[in-house]
Nucleic acid binder design. Structure first.
Length: 284
DNA sequence: GACCAGGCGTCTT
DNA sequence: AAGACGCATGGT
C-alpha cells in the first residue's frame, strides 16, 4: 500500500559470540542510540551496552552491519531486526525526503538514524519523564526507576519495570527517582495501562488522531509526549513531535511546514531535523 | 491567556 | 563560582 515504507528481511549471520544483522550506510548505531529517542544505552568498549525488551544487550557497529552479542539468528530476525529498524528500507525513505531540497542538509547529517520500535510501556513512561527535561537527567531517572522496580537480570542490569510493578505505588515510593513533579504522572500511566483503558492493542486499532487523543487521557501526556510515544513505541512513523530544536530549525529552513507527501514518514524527517538542529547547537 | 510547579543540566555572567 | 534559564504539562 504505502510505497515509501518498504519492509524486507535483512541478511543475518552467526559470527563469533553473536550475530550480525546486515545494514547499509543508512544505519549508524551511534546516531540511532544518541539521538534522544532511547535512554537505556551507554557507550562501552567499542560499542554500546543497554537493556531492551528485558534483555541485556551488547552492540557494535561493524562494516557488514549490526553486531549483537549472545543472541540467536531467530531472535535477531524476529525481535532485533524490527527493533532497530533494520527490516525497513531507509534509503528509499531518504530519497523521498531529499526530494525536498530544504531537507537535504538535515537528512545528510542524520541519515544513519533509525527509529527504534521500543516497548510501548517503556516508551510511555520514558517520555513522560522526558517532559521539561534533558537527556542526561532523563537517563538518570530511568536508570533509578529500573534499579528500584525492574527485574534484576543475571548480569546485574535491570529490566524496565512492568506496569504491574508500578501499579499501586504512591509518590513516596517514587521519591528515590528524584523525578520532580512527574511522579504522579508515572503512577497515572501505570494505572491506565493496568486497568486496561490505554493499551498498545487499543492504540494499534485506532487511527492516528484517535490514538493520540487516547494517549492524552493519561495525566502527564500532552501532544508532544503523545507523538513521541506513537513514534518510538508504536511504530507510527507519521508522528511528528515538535520540540524547541525542531521549532527553531523548521522556522529557519521550512516555515511552510512539511510537504504533504512526506506525512507517512514525518517522524523520520523530524528525526533528521532534530539531529541537524542539535549538531548546529553543539558547534556554536 | 498568564503563571507557577521540582529539579537539574547548561548556559551566562 | 554563582546565578539565570529552560524544558512539557497540568492546575490555578
Amino acid at each position: 500500500m504505502n510505497e515509501i515504507i518498504r519492509k524486507f528481511e535483512p541478511d543475518i549471520k552467526t559470527v563469533d559470540g553473536g550475530v550480525v544483522i546486515a545494514a547499509d550506510s543508512f544505519f549508524s548505531l551511534f546516531d540511532t542510540l544518541e539521538c534522544g529517542q532511547c535512554f537505556r544505552f551507554y557507550e562501552k568498549d567499542s560499542g554500546f551496552e543497554g537493556v531492551a525488551k528485558g534483555k541485556s544487550l551488547y552492540l557494535e557497529q561493524r562494516a557488514e552491519g549490526l553486531f549483537i552479542k549472545n543472541v540467536t539468528e531467530t531472535e535477531a530476525k524476529n525481535i532485533w531486526a524490527p527493533y532497530f529498524g533494520l527490516d525497513t528500507d531507509y534509503e528509499r525513505i531518504y530519497r523521498e525526503i531529499v526530494k525536498n531540497e530544504r531537507l537535504r542538509e538535515s537528512a545528510d547529517s542524520a541519515k544513519g538514524v533509525r527509529i527504534l520500535k521500543q516497548d510501548f510501556f517503556e516508551t510511555l513512561i520514558s517520555f513522560i519523564i522526558s517532559q521539561n527535561n534533558f537527556i542526561p537527567r532523563i537517563k538518570g531517572i530511568v536508570f533509578r526507576l529500573c534499579e528500584n522496580f525492574g527485574e534484576r537480570l543475571c548480569d546485574g542490569n535491570f529490566a524496565f519495570p512492568t506496569p504491574e510493578a508500578i501499579y499501586g505505588l504512591n509518590t513516596e515510593d517514587l521519591a528515590p527517582l528524584r523525578c520532580g513533579f512527574r511522579d504522579k504522572y508515572i503512577l497515572s500511566a501505570a494505572t491506565e495501562v493496568v486497568e486496561g483503558r490505554v493499551t498498545e492493542e487499543a492504540l494499534n486499532s485506532l487511527d492516528f488522531e484517535s490514538a493520540k487523543r487516547l494517549l492524552m487521557t493519561v495525566k502527564g501526556v500532552g501532544p508532544k509526549v503523545a507523538e513521541c510515544v506513537l513514534l518510538y513505541g508504536c511504530a507510527r512513523l507519521e508522528a511528528f513531535p515538535v520540540d524547541v530544536w525542531i521549532r527553531r530549525v523548521m522556522a529557519e529552513i521550512m516555515p511552510e511546514g512539511l510537504p504533504a507527501e512526506l506525512k507517512p514518514v514525518a517522524g523520520i524527517a523530524q528525526q533528521y531535523l532534530f539531529h541537524h538542529a542539535r549538531n548546529l547547537s553543539k558547534k556554536s
